[in-house]
Design a protein around this nucleic acid. Structure first.
Lengths: 212, 212
DNA sequence: CAGAATATACCCGTTAACACGTAGATTTTA
DNA sequence: TAAAATCTACGTGTTAACGGGTATATTCTG
């Protein structure tokens, strides 16, 4: 008999964890080794638990699944990540795929069969993206091509979105695990590119280009 | 032995249904008689299935849980409704409680114990609202009362528009032939009224309320 | 007419934001 | 492989922005 696929689950809604648990735990080739409602906590847990695949929600506070996936990929490159999302929030998918931090992305309206299929495919070294995700990925690409006229990088857009949420430089630095100086540098570069000189210009740009 | 509590479940995410199913189906006093990912479908099903309590998600397309609960209450007044929500989207809770269309409201980060407790309490003719809901309900009330009092004066709107045009306090003062101190005072008053603490909040408010 | 709302104006203190530089490490692209 | 872009990071300043007050004249409104 082959080794079971070892899963870690993180989702800030306990009920979803329970649901996934019940759905998957009785499957012969799948084993859930740890789960948590906190991204920070699960990051600590996968150090000591055996984990092949991390099943993570995307929209989580305070640490998003995007950030978690990246950290996991950097620190435990052998662990695969399957992202779960409520809606096809395509914003971040693209970035995650590019930096190889995730190996699959599915919506939560997925069925049991498809979910297991996705897990097995990823465990075998493959990738899995649901139809809806591929669609919204295409849309996101269109949007980016338009935004390319002003050449804002992914990182810069990420920072604009945080600025728009009224985060200070220090907060942004903490959220992205970078130095406050770096945030200032990004901010300056954004100002230069948008020919603006205050956050107001950024927010206006974000609204007009539907970045938010 | 007492009659089992008969549940209907609707949530547009199959995974949540499966989760709830697994969580509740092995409970001795609970029985799930039907479930669906469609509000329309479940409304048809409860006609022929025995249902004591309808467990429904709030954020659903195309028919929201709010509408569904209301229709169920009108057509089958004996059926109790327990609403489930991802986040404490307090907007609609208030309305639902007022027209008696729901008997309970919990967040999806609820645990198994609490969920069962809620179901049993409602089955016994009681009501159940989770702490978070009660809190966000209170907040929502505050927000509404304050929002009703947000009467920005003409002068203040004039100043918001200039701020949005990236004018500094000094520029605004010169344009309106008033002192820079006065502009600062207006700004402070606006902040106070909008419960914001930076220009970003003002600009967002202006965009959202089509002041510009 | 009395109270509320509005527009005006000032003081004091803190700090986050922004200007202008420089520069190494990594990744992408030509 | 060389060049370009991106992300990272630091130093040194200046100042506009913001929080906390107080206060007066005018207009609106019950």
């Amino acid at each position: 008999m082959k080794e079971k696929i070892k899963l870690a689950i993180v989702d800030d809604h306990q009920i979803v964890i329970d649901g996934l648990h019940s759905l998957l735990s009785n499957h012969p080739s799948i084993e859930i080794t740890c789960s948590s409602t906190s991204a920070v906590e699960i990051f600590g847990m996968i150090k000591t638990h055996n984990v092949d695949i991390l099943l993570t929600d995307i929209m989580m506070e305070p640490m998003s699944g995007v950030v978690l996936a990246k950290k996991v990929h950097e620190n435990y490159p052998s662990i695969k990540v399957l992202a779960l999302s409520m809606s096809g929030a395509g914003d971040m998918v693209d970035e995650m795929i590019r930096n190889d931090s995730i190996h699959g992305y599915v919506l939560k309206n997925i069925g049991r069969q498809e979910l297991i299929k996705a897990i097995q495919k990823i465990a075998d070294g493959g990738i899995y993206y649901s139809e809806e995700i591929l669609e919204s990925l295409a849309k996101e690409n269109d949007r980016k091509q338009q935004a390319a006229q002003v050449h804002l990088t992914d990182r810069e857009i990420e920072i604009i979105r945080l600025i728009e949420k009224e985060k200070g430089n220090k907060e942004i630095a903490d959220l992205l695990f970078i130095s406050e100086r770096t945030v200032e540098t990004h901010r300056k570069n954004i100002f230069r590119k948008l020919k603006s000189s205050s956050v107001i210009g950024l927010v206006k740009y974000a609204y007009e280009h539907k970045l938010i």
